[in-house]
Amino acid sequence: MIRCSCLIQAGQVAEKQQTNLEAGLTKIAQTYFSDSAEVGWTHIAKGSGFTDSKPSQSSIISMNVPADTAQETRVDVLHAICDLWSAETGCHVDDVVATAMSA
């Protein structure tokens, strides 16, 4: 199981979009790790998210990947996540932070 943690600003992503993003993350996990994804969501309340000390529009997506994942694969996964977010939400890529973490 590939675990994903998504922190998004409340009201920024519609319910349908969230469903599509979850499906997209599952597809990425299947494509690169032949595994399913477990996606957790945290909605940052209005007035509670800041980037550069200003109200944030950033989404932060962390995918926990196997420790032996090659750097080249991590980069591909990160691009896939950023592309997914931009395409589904219409946000600017500068507002997407993605990590491919291993314990």
């Binding site: 750097q71 990160l78 997407v96 932070v97 993605a98 990590t99 491919a100 291993s102």
Partner: peptide, 13 residues
């Protein structure tokens, strides 16, 4: 600590 090469912001590592 998060290795910088494991993180992407603005579409760049």
């Amino acid at each position: 600590d998060v290795p910088a090469k494991w993180a992407m912001e603005g579409g760049d590592i």
